[in-house]
Nucleic acid binder design. Structure first.
Lengths: 221, 221
DNA sequence: TCCGGCTGGAAACGAGTGTTTAAAACATAA
DNA sequence: TTATGTTTTAAACACTCGTTTCCAGCCGGA
């Protein structure tokens, strides 16, 4: 117990600081001093700062993938025809995302980390996440294809990234937006609140009418 | 001409590097060596790295605000009742955003910078943009309020940022997504193409049904 | 000719970075 | 106990960072 105590304290401190300031802006000295462990402990237990960053993500994403696979298993069992309604798929994903940090303590940190994974230009992180957790995501998109048979493949591809952009952009810039919303509308917004607002918007976006076919040939640009 | 040449070369180089790697990850030495100017030139001409970052933004945002104000002036003149349809407002903003980098080099850079301004927001940048360009944005949101009288103020605020996230996320990550789409669906997508696909999605998102009222929460978060 | 004024350039400064080292402290098993 | 492997510690290493200094060059006006 005492041996893993240092590791846990480093991870707990690092994830908060990373979420607040980003990766490059958070030094190992800041982490270790705030966690009250020795500076060398990070390199001893994790090997490098990069590995620490990946470990922070793994602590959230590993339980997430397990839970999400289980949830999708149940859904597929319930829908013998293999077609799961889009709303159910989105709802399941949102619920799984919300459940994971429930056993840990901060949902906000998890959300900010997801945003950082895209916005911060850490090439190694994107590769790591893609390699380690890409399979869950493609299983999800396969189910979305079954749920939206009328959508051309390319249109569904783009719309999924549209809504992905909405979610990630909103959550990664959450603090800034929340500050404005707080003093502008006098209502403090939680992450759960945001997801409640996001759901109808996302569903409407996915079910939007198809765009008009591309103009045959206007002026070149 | 020779006197401003150094300044221009620094700005041209800095905006590309910032867009590619972010602010903290781009050192002044990388910028000055790639721009083939002396290291001290940045501090001589701009004062500090912070001021350089702000100057990079100003070079895009200054022309943008001028054009956008003019465009809104024309719209208000055309619609004497003061109510401009939502689609027209969105279309106008999109056209203005697309026009500005046309006279400069890169739409991609402009989009990535906008994304960075939110996600990687150093405090000083957010404050600078808010102070310097907040008035145009609030003029726009005022017009959107007139166009969507049924939407509660806070709901409209969040939905505007939802669609802002969609646009910025999609356009700033355009090349990566385009590469996937190209070889997955064998159709090369242009920016015009993307805007065509974005329009119905954005309109549907803004007009989505209202979310259910928040559940009274027993647990705090 | 000399002159202040800008601009350009090499070098250095001081602070901060991730990482490594080597010794000390600890725990556990023989 | 001694021996063994693991963990912690303080110190140093080898950078890179933004910024500053100081001096050489250039300029048009006296």
């Amino acid at each position: 117990m005492a041996q893993t105590d240092t590791v846990t304290r480093i991870l707990d401190t690092a994830e908060v600081l990373f979420a607040e300031r980003g990766f490059a802006e958070t030094s190992l000295r800041t982490i270790t001093s705030k966690a009250r462990v020795n500076l060398a402990a990070v390199n001893y237990h994790f090997g490098s700062k990069k590995s620490l960053i990946q470990a922070v993500f793994a602590r959230y994403l590993d339980p997430f993938t397990v839970r999400f696979h289980h949830a999708l298993d149940e859904l597929e069992a319930q829908h013998a025809d293999g077609v799961i309604p889009l709303e159910v798929l989105l709802e399941t994903m949102a619920r799984t995302v919300l459940d994971v940090p429930a056993e840990r303590h901060s949902l906000k940190v998890f959300m900010k980390l997801l945003g950082l994974a895209y916005s911060q230009a850490q090439g190694h992180l994107r590769r790591y996440i893609q390699d380690e957790y890409g399979s869950v995501f493609s299983r999800f998109t396969d189910l979305v294809r079954l749920a939206t048979p009328d959508l051309p493949d390319s249109e569904r591809f783009w719309r999924l990234h549209f809504v992905l952009g909405t979610v990630i952009f909103t959550l990664s810039g959450l603090d800034a937006l929340r500050d404005i919303a707080d003093k502008e509308y006098q209502e403090h917004v939680t992450v759960r609140d945001l997801i409640r607002r996001l759901r109808p918007v996302v569903v409407a976006a996915m079910n939007a009418p198809l765009p008009p076919p591309p103009m045959p040939k206007a002026e070149a640009s």
